[in-house]
Simulated scan of single mutants.
Amino acid sequence: MDGILKEDGSYVFTQDPTKIEVKEGAAVGATDKDIVIDTTKAKLELKGATGINAEGANVTVKGNTSISGATGINAANGNVTLNGSTVINGTDAAINAGTGASVTVDGNNSALKIDGSINADSGNITIDSGKATSAIKGDINASNGGSVAINLNEKGSELTGGYNVDVTSSIEMNLANGATWHLTDGEEAAGMSLLRMSKGAADAGLTINGGKTEAEKGFLDMTERTKTLDIAHYSGWETVIYDHEGKGDKVEDYKSGDAVIAKADKGSGVILSTDGSGITMTDKNAVEATLKALAQKVTYKDHAANGENLSGKVQIAEGLTSSSVSKNLGTIHWDENGKGQYDLDSVNWNQIIEGDYETLVMKGVRSAATTSMHS
């Protein structure tokens, strides 16, 4: 290894890149003594059956790191802390945290790229990209009292995958400022009792925290998920993206699962969005029929006691992507079952302009609606 072993037992690497590759076992393993690595002046590349294994001791890495293996990081009765730009590729799993273990990946405002599942089985995992654009691809699993917290707060940051969480565990997703979670059905983790409503421990289940304001919202892309999105606790603002078949004027036109919110903090809001494909956008009745069907894809279980905590909106955007332009926005209310219901005539047809331009589609809708109202 090209580096310097300091008196305090830490390693400082200066050759860029520094590569550690083993055919068996872990590239970096801590079993009885803590390991501290400083790679701020060089990129550290770790490759093995396991990239980092902390089993009985701790591993701390400061600087840019690339990790690959069947398992990227494995921790049990030991902690792993990474500070800096990080790439993790795990063919079986990107990160595993077992009993008595924690894994913290802090990009320190540098990009993170993680490929592989993230699994907290009794352990704790925190991933924070700060103000950097990052990409995560893999299912998120929490079981047996484990917890996963992921912070994506920058436009362009993306997470793609499903989730599983049992009644004793928690997953916290912080998505704001244009960050997007592309939800999939995922693979159900073996031996897990999935949480279908807010129960068990007070913080158990899936928590989603969006932007503090509507302008700072994140995005939940449901176009590839057929299962229900069960949210035990919700705060802030998110847009939930749905695609549709046909005209989108029937609930059954939306094949993705519903979004079900058990509890919401005061001042929270959710926007349901679909695109204009198959819809006669110059027909006010057709547009409102679509909004009426789309609104029913969200349910707020705590509506009777705290209905005012969560505002609901529906929109038809230019396209399905999170960057799509739209001001074709209506409001919704919660019925006696907590299901979203579109407020008829709640669209302000004279405010379908975004930024400095107006699309032809939006212009057509506004013109038709205005003519209809004048008539």
Rank of each mutant, 00 (worst) to 15 (best):
D203M: 07
K212F: 00
F219C: 10
L229W: 01
T207C: 05
T160Y: 06
I241Y: 05
L206Y: 06
A204R: 10
Y234V: 06
S169D: 10
G205S: 12
N174M: 07
M197G: 12
M222Q: 09
G218R: 04
M192P: 01
L183R: 13
S170N: 12
A149Y: 00
T184D: 13
G218W: 02
L229T: 04
E238C: 12
E214G: 14
K199Y: 06
L220D: 06
L206D: 06
T239W: 00
K227L: 13
K227W: 03
N164L: 08
N153R: 13
E158K: 08
W181V: 09
S193H: 05
L229S: 06
T160S: 15
T226M: 10
D221H: 03
T228Y: 03
S198G: 10
T223G: 07
H182K: 15
E188S: 14
A149T: 10
T239P: 01
L195H: 05
A149R: 06
A201Y: 11
T213A: 14
S235D: 07
S198R: 15
G211E: 12
K155I: 00
Y234W: 08
Y163M: 10
Y163L: 12
V240E: 02
G162L: 08
D203P: 03
S193D: 13
T160D: 11
E158Y: 00
L175G: 08
S157I: 01
M192A: 11
A232T: 05
G161D: 03
S198V: 03
T184H: 11
G211I: 05
V240F: 03
A202I: 00
G211N: 11
A190G: 14
V167Q: 14
G191W: 13
A149G: 03
M173I: 04
K217R: 15
A190V: 13
F219A: 15
H233C: 02
E158G: 01
I231D: 12
A201G: 14
D230K: 15
G210Q: 03
E172L: 08
G236S: 12
L183Y: 08
N209I: 07
V165A: 05
S235I: 00
N151Q: 05
S235M: 04
E158M: 04
E216F: 01
L229F: 04
V148M: 03
D166G: 03
G205Q: 09
I171N: 10
K155C: 00
T226V: 08
T207Q: 12
E188F: 02
S198A: 15
A215R: 09
N164T: 11
G161Q: 05
I171Q: 13
D166W: 00
E214Y: 14
S157T: 01
A204N: 11
M192K: 11
E154F: 01
A176E: 13
G211A: 11
S169Q: 11
I231F: 08
K199I: 07
K227S: 14
G205W: 03
G200K: 08
D166T: 00
S235F: 01
V240I: 09
L175A: 12
T226C: 07
R225F: 02
D221L: 03
R225D: 06
I171E: 12
T207M: 10
A202V: 01
T213K: 15
G211R: 12
L194I: 11
S169W: 06
T184L: 14
E216V: 00
D203I: 03
W237C: 02
E238L: 15
G162E: 07
K217T: 04
N174K: 15
L175W: 05
